[in-house]
């Protein structure tokens, strides 16, 4: 009996062992190394105007603008994802009928291609001589010599495009879970359709919106592919700074500090957002 119990005690750890070791060595420990690299105080780093804690304190001056831009783009992209994705998820969940699975398959279809090629496809769509720019010029929304490429709007809409399925799917799941009888109850109690939506549907779908926002905002804020392929130097994001400098050894302490700050800001943002939405229990 005691033998069986002791077996039970180590059994889960034996099963967890390989995975936990892998994640500790190649996920958690590297974050510690990232921090120690970020605090590097060598001669080379000092000559570059940093060293120790200065690697962090110089960030607002050197990269403040890029940080603000990164979070602005990611925030706008996330809000647009909600604006576009929520009605899509609602449509699938409430009106999909027997086409529900087919519609969900269409939502994830872009994932069956490659991320970079999808973004290049956007590059094709917003091309100076493409049909979209031609149409916008024809309507007079943009000038005859103007284009879309290199503008913040192209970068933001490419981010929205790339992460939209991550918004639609969790919202769909939470809408699907809603007991339809609650909506009927709302109506039976003389609530108007908008009121029922506000008080029942929207509230119950908040966990989905929360999950979707994280799945959109986090990858968007670290992304450099969209800003690189569709933007210019004036639309650079934090990811671009890291991507352009990671190979140069002397800049590694600086960008390590920068990515550490990015991580902390995201973490703080997530906690704040959870508090605002009242979904702390989800984390």
């Amino acid at each position: 009996m005691s033998n069986a119990r002791s077996t039970k005690r180590w059994a889960p750890w034996a099963l967890l062992g390989p995975g936990v070791v892998w994640l500790v060595v190649f996920f958690a420990f590297p974050l510690v190394r990232l921090l120690t690299t970020a605090l590097d105080d060598s001669e080379t780093t000092r000559r570059l105007g940093g060293g120790g804690i200065k690697n962090f304190t110089t960030i607002p001056k050197n990269y403040g603008e890029v940080l603000v831009r990164t979070f602005t783009y990611s925030l706008i992209a996330t809000l647009l994802c909600i604006a576009i994705g929520y009605p899509m998820a609602y449509f699938i969940a409430m009106r999909g009928g027997r086409f529900k699975n087919a519609l969900l398959a269409l939502v994830v279809l872009p994932f069956f291609t490659t991320y970079l090629i999808r973004t290049i496809a956007w590059r094709v769509i917003v091309d100076q001589e493409g049909p979209l720019v031609g149409f916008l010029r024809w309507t007079g929304m943009i000038g005859d010599s103007e284009g879309l490429l290199g503008r913040p709007i192209s970068v933001v809409f490419a981010l929205v495009y790339n992460f939209l399925p991550f918004m639609v799917l969790p919202i769909y799941v939470s809408l699907e879970k809603i007991d339809k009888r609650l909506l009927e109850a709302g109506r039976d109690l003389f609530a108007s359709a908008p009121r029922t939506f506000r008080k029942v549907t929207m509230r119950l779908s908040l966990p989905g919106v929360f999950a979707g926002s994280l799945l959109t905002f986090i990858p968007a804020s670290g992304d450099f592919v969209n800003a690189d392929l569709l933007g210019t130097d004036s639309t650079l994001m934090i990811g671009n700074i890291i991507e352009k400098n990671f190979l140069k050894e002397q800049f590694r302490p600086g960008i390590s500090a920068l990515s550490f700050v990015l991580m902390l800001l995201i973490l703080g943002g997530v906690l704040l957002y959870a508090k605002l939405l009242g979904t702390e229990d989800l984390i």
């Binding site: 670290g222 960008i255 990515s259 995201i266």
Partner: peptide
């Protein structure tokens, strides 16, 4: 452990990638 398991899903790839690079270096 369950929380630790979710952490990699909540981190931008560029941070994970850079920290791993720093480790390998």
């Amino acid at each position: 452990i369950s929380t630790f398991l979710i952490l990699p899903l909540t981190m931008p790839e560029v941070v994970m990638g850079l920290s791993l690079l720093v480790l390998f270096v």
